[in-house]
Design a protein around this nucleic acid. Structure first.
Lengths: 146, 146
DNA sequence: ACAAATACAACTGAAATTGTTACGTATGTC
DNA sequence: GACATACGTAACAATTTCAGTTGTATTTGT
């Protein structure tokens, strides 16, 4: 996997879950399918659980499943759950510059970026997991009877 | 400097140039002021030059200056010149997955992100370098007579 | 000729992120 | 109750990314 794989992994997994909401999946299964590691899966899905999007059960027959209908999960929910903040928060928490241009500029740029970030989330909220899930999903069909 | 410092460095430098457009600055001067390295400055400003925002002259008395009025430079121009692409291009150029959900999903997510990216650029285009430049800039005043 | 500046390539180093291992804890089955 | 299974978490290793650095070539004005 590569850069920003958390969002990818989260969406991929949620998309599969949307296709078969009652099936409980282990982090090992998910990791195997997404070609990554169970611990990585738990790290990412753990964030989604904190946000109330899915639940995990320990022990035998435990695993992960959606805790709300996939229709109710927007891309914004996933994005915010992962603390992504693509836009703003970029050039922050630096040592305070002794250049008045720099500090004044940073403040103004921060305002602009914050507005854009808000708008990003607004638009992500308009798309749900089911919206980005393929209509004809051979994987779901093959797994549906399991 | 830190993450996404290229945009910071670019805006900081352009902002200074906006305050005294005819002054030619060397990458060493700029690096010194921005507490970074001349080569780093050239890397970043080189991108802005490719985009036509400023020019560089080699040799004695060479250096960098704006090639267009600062009013005509929007944040979008800078953002695009640096190939930032904060939003989309995030989970791309991975090895093609053998999972039909993954490929289908990626395509759909890409559409959404591209739309959001377009909107981001639109909004960045509404703000110019002079807009984010502090109105009362002690640095500009002190340098104005040089 | 010389000095000053960009252009560029190659390498180094630090920070962030992912991947891995290991161990603790919880839960269902026998 | 013993055991297998699965999550939770911490600690560490490997990888990636990007700023930083060094060195050399080239251009340009004095």
């Amino acid at each position: 996997m590569k850069r920003n794989s958390r969002l990818s992994l989260a969406l991929h997994t949620l998309s599969h879950m949307a296709g078969d909401p009652d099936r409980v999946r282990t982090s090992a299964d998910i990791a195997d399918h997404a070609r990554t590691n169970p611990v990585v899966v738990r790290r990412v899905l753990g964030k989604l659980r904190e946000a109330g999007l899915l639940t995990s059960e320990k022990g035998h027959a435990g695993g992960w499943k959606l805790s709300v209908p996939a229709d109710d999960i927007s891309l914004a929910d996933v994005y915010l759950a992962l603390d992504e903040r693509l836009v703003s928060g970029a050039s922050q928490d630096d040592e305070p510059s002794d250049c008045s241009v720099e500090t004044g500029l940073q403040a103004r740029v921060a305002v602009v970026l914050d507005e854009i970030e808000e708008n990003l989330v607004e638009r992500l909220r308009e798309t749900s997991i089911t919206d980005v899930h393929p209509k004809t999903c051979s994987y779901c069909e093959s797994q549906a009877t399991q």
